[in-house]
Design a protein around this nucleic acid. Structure first.
Lengths: 133, 133
DNA sequence: TCTTGATGTGTGTATATACCCGGATCTATC
DNA sequence: GATAGATCCGGGTATATACACACATCAAGA
């Protein structure tokens, strides 16, 4: 019984499902929604340190560090050093900008699909509820 | 902009947050919410094969297999063979039943907290919305 | 300047998750 | 009864995520 009403489990299922929608749409570009979103955050803050970025996206620093490394290997992001030699400074690489441009309409498509399915009212409700958790 | 309205990213954030609520509550028992929930599902279906369990919890078979292995190492679950020699059959071990009993009130606590914070109305709304995704 | 404490990373470890592939077993068909 | 196709699992590989610990660097004070 309880498994069907567990807020956590239901959230996880929904997250896996919705993630796959975005992942499928972005697949032609070779990135998943987590990477695409991280890329967008980096663009908005670049040049940005791992710590600042991690704070922004509300993920552990080490997690962001490892995710960033994947983006670096894909040549979507450049990881350099700031004046403070401790800082790893992230900037978007040319290929990364390309992905951002090509990915925008794909992301829009999924976003629109979801809102169309739920309706604007419910989509808004959902976001409000998630923020209250 | 878009990162703040991406259904997927917001879902992920909410999921991580809510997971931590349950994880903290269950921490004294040494299990997390994913393990506890899996345990509950196994109890409900035991003896159950990996494939059937995976189908039930909507996770990949290999994922469930690996998660089950962790539970086996913790001695919460026993993994044996059915008549069909291919099947890995899961059953709850004595320690597992203990965890299930002790965990129930802890799980209830978190569940109640969340519903108290949101209110029954919104809690219900949330679950309905998640199901529509 | 030297020491100390704070800050920023990277790595080790562990779980969660998915996809793919290979090996074992079962089943149906001939 | 033997073979072909279906089914089940395990392991390899890759990303995502967190926590703890060690190392490097910086900044402030003696």
């Amino acid at each position: 019984m309880s498994n069907d009403t567990c807020h956590c489990i239901l959230l996880r299922k929904a997250t896996r499902k919705v993630s796959s929608y975005y992942d499928e749409a972005l697949a032609p570009l070779g990135v998943n929604i987590g990477q695409f979103s991280l890329l967008r955050n980096i663009r908005r803050m670049e040049p940005v340190s791992l710590t600042d970025l991690a704070h922004k996206v509300e993920l552990d620093r080490s997690t962001v560090g490892r995710n960033a490394k994947v983006l670096e290997r894909m040549e979507l992001v450049a990881i350099g050093h700031g004046e403070d030699q401790r800082e790893a400074v992230l900037t978007i690489a040319p290929k990364g900008r390309e992905i951002l441009e090509k990915g925008a309409p794909l992301w829009d498509g999924v976003q629109d699909d979801i809102e169309a399915r739920l309706g604007h009212e419910k989509a808004r409700q959902l976001q409000d509820l998630l923020a209250e958790l």
